[in-house]
Design a binder for these strands. Sequence first.
DNA 1: AGCATCCCTGAAACCGGTTGCAGAACAGCC
DNA 2: GGCTGTTCTGCAACCGGTTTCAGGGATGCT
Lengths: 353, 353
Amino acid sequence: MKQKSKTVPHRVRGKRGPRPRNSVTLKMVAREAGVSASTASRIINRTVNVSDELRLAVEAAIAKFKFRPNAAARGLALGRTLTIGVVSQAMDSPFYGEALVAIERRLQPLGYAPLFMSGNWQEQEEVRCMEELVNRGVDGIIMFAGCLGDAALKAYARKVPIVVTGRLLRTKGLFSMQVDDRNGAMLAMRHLLELGHKRIAFVTGFVNHPDANERLLGYKNALAAAGIGFDPQLVVPGDFHEEGGMRAVYQLMDSGVKFTAMFCVNDQTAYGACLALFRRGLGVPKDVSVVGFDDLPASTYRIPPLTCVRQSVQQLGECSAEAILQLIAGRRPQITVPAVELVVRESTGGVSR
Amino acid sequence: MKQKSKTVPHRVRGKRGPRPRNSVTLKMVAREAGVSASTASRIINRTVNVSDELRLAVEAAIAKFKFRPNAAARGLALGRTLTIGVVSQAMDSPFYGEALVAIERRLQPLGYAPLFMSGNWQEQEEVRCMEELVNRGVDGIIMFAGCLGDAALKAYARKVPIVVTGRLLRTKGLFSMQVDDRNGAMLAMRHLLELGHKRIAFVTGFVNHPDANERLLGYKNALAAAGIGFDPQLVVPGDFHEEGGMRAVYQLMDSGVKFTAMFCVNDQTAYGACLALFRRGLGVPKDVSVVGFDDLPASTYRIPPLTCVRQSVQQLGECSAEAILQLIAGRRPQITVPAVELVVRESTGGVSR
DNA sequence: AGCATCCCTGAAACCGGTTGCAGAACAGCC
DNA sequence: GGCTGTTCTGCAACCGGTTTCAGGGATGCT
């Protein structure tokens, strides 16, 4: 009768794998040092005390082979990948660049690496990013704004810690932070009002974008506080980019509305607005004062340098990195959101006509 | 006598691991579908033909559980992580942003995700990035410029495919591409010369930066071709940023050298130069013509819009992504480096004084 | 019927780490 | 010496996939 071979162990494969594995493994280091892999691992991670002799031997072997533990294996064993997913909307936007750098800098000394992905302001793409990040087993996710629904976000938060900006949300495993857009807008408006402007246009962003809405609210509040009536004709749509700013100016001027100042939903919009004014022969701030929002690095070097509301994107990045770390550590983040402030430069002046 | 317990199998641990593993595993899917993990794996990867019945069962189970394979485990088993490391110098630089987006877009449909890290123009940091990326087992690395030595780069290329820009190097597993800086500089200079400028300043970058050197060479060649003597006083150092451009203008003007046009090593330098000229009461292009290099998105919206040499950073990103994919596939990349071209806008004009 | 093939499928080895458990070595104390 | 405690170390299980190998069933051919 043929014997069942169930219990016969497999022959060890001679060589395998689609690609040559030329990297140094823990086992090789351990053998070189004359210890077992477990001991070597413990020495590397300082999990327990080990005799000096062995420790030195292992360290020597590590140095000799330039051994660096395989991140995938470690991630698999530990259930942590030392990776933080970061979903921004467009990495080429000067707005996000700063934040990403700040995150990277904060994370790097702790061994964490950021994995950046772009949502491009499309819910579907944001979902793709989130799924991908979860599959890759990131230890946490930082999400900048975005159109993903609150409910979906909360669902993800049950699988992995999440820090989100641009909205306020309370759930376990999620921390949200929002800059004070409304207050920022009021700072800008108060500045223009103090300069004597009464006809102030507002170039907004996409319809229903929360940031834009908040800033519009600040615009209205400031007008009301100054006793100036709200004129819907002075509010025109933009797209958060230069093009939108240009179109907005053309639309305003073509409609015949009078205005002596503009408050733009963000700096890029202001850049476009300035160019359109220039094209129509109007000077900034001689004929029209312009205020932006963000304080991008480039704003300092515009001609003229742009007056704007500063929200420190760098600080925002630092804070979100800090928050995700605390969330991962199981603590509830104690973070103060960076304040907005007005930076007066040379794109604003008194009323001249 | 006490029996040796070597052969007694360990008791299965009840629960372990520092964090709860709440994710769906292949095994769960397989059990649900009534097949083994091996079969499920094969179905997912389409490794072999499987009866329709089983395939449908497995697909149903996957859908039911929303199963997505754990990337770390897959990476460990396959030896590939579907991750491409990208070392840029500063992610907040508008220059790199575009390239990164292009890379992401090219890689995404293939399941690859880019892992971005910043070298900050420091050899030591670049080494850190490379080490980290290698440890993480990325399938390939794209490196933008940088100060890492050629020898070191070649050494890394023996462990992982590398695409590098900004230098020319030939080794196995490495592909390099360089935009034609010299030719670009000559385009810019020819334009200024044709406008009648004879006293043209050049604001360079860091000393010994290869790009800056190449562009300086183009500057000299163009002058020589036009029969104009080279005046070292017209060449001043910058730093590739706005600040450097400003300092350069001040230095030029304070030294009393006469010039009617400036060629700047990159757009950001030109922005700074324009601002400094503005500060000193000089108009662009009325008093001084300015040409940049890069054609950053912002250049279109400067006042006046900047004339510059365009190197399509986006194309550069696409090409490098394409190249690394081909390299990973074991082919030698067939890539044509994007050409440089002159984009004439409004920061250049005829000589007025 | 007898035998070689081919197609599917599952058990188990393997990727490269971490870690629970037990055993060895050694010290301290009665 | 005998016994208890520490401290250190190694075996082997485990993370969650992929893949080799062998075996069972169906089929083709003589």
